[in-house]
């Protein structure tokens, strides 16, 4: 898991390129190639973050797409010289929180995908139960706590990165994470042993 987090961080570090303000300027003028480069840089992480919230691959792809389109519509609101990443992830997270509420009922009725595989059916079933329990526990968290735990523990964002995305102090981010983990542990215990 630590390696996965390091990989995610590396991916984000690569996105903070010096030419990014130029790309944003070109996108402002309607440059398709520049927009394509931004999509290439952020789409995989955007999909992963969206999946963390929605636990559904197609919904996550739709959400990532919507976030890119919303970013394109509002690109003039991004201050010149400001990094695209935190601003884009903020749009994505807000959209994800809205979509999460909308899809909550549907997701609860479905068995999450990717729970079965060629392995041991008993292990797959156990994994599916765990996924359901965890997804329910994350769903039960308040929005701000769920966001921090998904970005930090699932996607490997650092506290300063999350603070920039959510526009909150780092200390608040840390306390949110601490509370979220505690609530998740308690929720998971209750779901497993009601």
């Amino acid at each position: 898991m630590a390696r996965a987090m390091a990989g995610a961080n590396d991916q984000r570090d690569q996105t903070i390129d010096l030419d990014e303000p130029l790309l944003v300027e070109r996108v402002r003028r309607g440059d398709r190639e520049a927009f394509g480069k931004l999509v290439d840089r952020y789409s995989e992480q955007a999909f992963a973050v969206a999946y963390g919230f929605l636990q559904h691959a197609e919904d996550a792809e739709d959400l990532a797409q919507d976030a890119f389109l919303r970013a394109l519509e509002r690109i003039d609101r991004l201050d010149r010289g400001s990094p695209f990443g935190p601003w884009f992830y903020r749009l994505l997270v807000n959209a994800a929180l809205n979509r999460r509420k909308y899809l909550a009922r549907r997701r609860m009725e479905k068995i999450p995908e990717g729970t079965t595989g060629p392995g041991d059916p008993a292990a797959d079933a156990e994994r599916a139960v765990l996924r359901n329990c965890l997804a329910s526990a994350v769903d039960a968290l308040p929005d701000d706590l769920a966001t921090v735990v998904i970005l930090h523990d699932l996607e490997g964002f650092t506290h300063p990165e999350i603070a920039r995305v959510l526009e909150i102090p780092e200390g608040t981010c840390r306390s949110h994470l601490s509370r979220a983990r505690r609530m998740l542990r308690e929720g998971l215990k209750e779901l497993r042993h009601p």
Partner: peptide, 28 residues
């Protein structure tokens, strides 16, 4: 609570195939 939940990893996004990535990029 400083320790992350080990089990949380099951909620991570599954890897997407190159074909699926290209299709998503094309749609965007």
């Amino acid at each position: 609570e400083e320790r992350p939940l080990d089990e949380l990893g099951v909620l991570k996004a599954p890897p997407r195939s190159e074909e699926r990535r290209r299709a998503a990029r094309g749609r965007i």
